[in-house]
Computed example of a mutant assay.
Amino acid sequence: MSFRLNIALPILTLIYNPACNKCNKTLSILHKVLEQHPDAFKLDILDYQKQPPTKDQLRNIVQYLNIENDLNKILRNEDGTVKEGTGPSSIQELTNLVKEDPIKLQRPILVDWDKGKAIIARPAEKVDGFLKELGYLKE
């Protein structure tokens, strides 16, 4: 008699904008990894403009990125609207800002909920190093 243990795969979430070239490049890299290693992890794709991250998700992501003291680092500032010292000062303010104007959120963000790690994948090539660091890819 043989049996297989029911092992749950870790879940990685890509916080993603389908209109963003960097997001699409990151998604392409992740799909290639999964083609080569289909049992490495399960990929969850979150279109943050349709469904912004929740307050709890943002709190965890900020902790995983180790940016609790500078919440501006999770915001895009290409237009110069977020001045130093003027951004959100709490997770609640960050949550409200992202709900009001989701495009302000940095993207893409790749999150490993099980290992408590996240990365802002800019440039997209940072994903390979992140996956190696987490043990999903071999050197």
Rank of each mutant, 00 (worst) to 15 (best):
A124E: 06
D56G: 03
I103T: 13
P88Y: 09
Q57E: 15
N24Y: 04
P38F: 13
D39I: 10
R107N: 07
V33T: 14
H31K: 13
N96P: 00
E68Y: 00
K55T: 11
V62G: 07
L137N: 09
T26V: 02
M1Q: 11
G85E: 05
F41E: 03
D112T: 00
D47K: 06
F41L: 09
L34A: 02
K99G: 01
N21Y: 05
V127R: 07
Q49E: 10
Y64M: 14
L5A: 13
I119R: 00
D39M: 13
N66A: 14
K25W: 07
N21D: 05
E78T: 06
A40M: 10
A8C: 02
H31R: 14
N72E: 12
P53K: 08
V98F: 05
Q106L: 01
T86E: 15
K104Q: 15
K22E: 02
V127Q: 07
C20T: 09
P53E: 08
L58F: 10
N66K: 15
P18C: 09
A121I: 04
T13K: 09
E84F: 11
D39N: 15
L12T: 05
D112M: 01
G80K: 02
L97A: 05
K32W: 02
N24L: 14
K22H: 05
D70C: 09
F130E: 03
I103R: 14
D101R: 04
H37D: 11
L134W: 01
R4F: 13
I29H: 06
I109L: 09
E78V: 05
R4D: 08
N24D: 02
C23K: 02
P102K: 03
N77R: 10
K55L: 13
K132L: 10
G129Y: 05
L14T: 04
K126D: 08
K115I: 06
E78L: 09
G80C: 03
T54S: 13
Q63W: 05
D128A: 11
K83F: 14
S90A: 12
V111Q: 00
N77E: 11
D101P: 00
L14S: 02
S89L: 08
P102T: 02
E139C: 08
N21I: 10
T86C: 12
D44L: 11
K117M: 02
K73D: 08
K42D: 13
N60L: 15
S89I: 06
Q57I: 12
H31N: 15
V98R: 00
P18I: 08
L14N: 01
K22A: 06
T86Q: 14
K83M: 15
N77F: 11
I29N: 02
L58Q: 02
Y16C: 08
E68A: 03
E100V: 01
E35P: 08
G85N: 06
P38C: 12
D112V: 00
D39V: 10
D70W: 06
N69M: 12
T54Y: 04
D47V: 07
H31D: 14
I109A: 04
T95H: 12
L134A: 05
L58C: 06
V127I: 15
F41D: 03
A124T: 07
N21K: 07
Q63I: 07
G129H: 09
Q57V: 12
Q57W: 12
G116N: 10
